[in-house]
């Protein structure tokens, strides 16, 4: 199945969203990502029971941290969908892409050795 989603999104596969850690999300932001989101299974459908629910809490925690330091928390999100929902995946990707575009580039920029 070929689905088009914005090419500026880098997909990182994990066995379960439960594997995604607060630090992974923060590191993405720290390294200059304009946004980062987790696409997890539908609630109640986690193969490892609660991986997706725990991760939603982690995502919320990261949002809190960003809020505290004055960065739009919307740059980090979590979505729930099943692996059979390819169209939805693409739709979410476009939606997130749009949202980040309205927010503009991340204020977190490493000083390049310019």
């Amino acid at each position: 199945m070929r689905l088009s989603y914005p090419s500026n999104i880098k997909v990182i596969q994990v066995p379960c969203t439960g594997r995604v850690d607060i630090l992974h999300l923060l590191n993405a932001i720290e390294n200059g990502a304009d946004g980062v989101y987790v696409a997890g299974c539908l609630e109640g459908e986690c193969h490892y029971l609660t991986g997706n629910i725990k991760t939603r809490k982690k995502v919320n925690y990261v949002k809190k941290i960003l809020q505290e330091i004055g960065i739009e928390p919307e740059r980090v999100e979590m979505f729930s969908l099943s692996s059979a929902m390819g169209l939805k995946f693409a739709e979410i990707a476009r939606e997130m892409n749009e949202k980040i575009k309205t927010l503009g580039p991340t204020p977190v920029r490493k000083k390049e050795a310019a």
Partner: peptide, 10 residues
Amino acid sequence: ASALRIARQK
């Protein structure tokens, strides 16, 4: 450490 770095980079 990461959060502080992000804040300071910002």
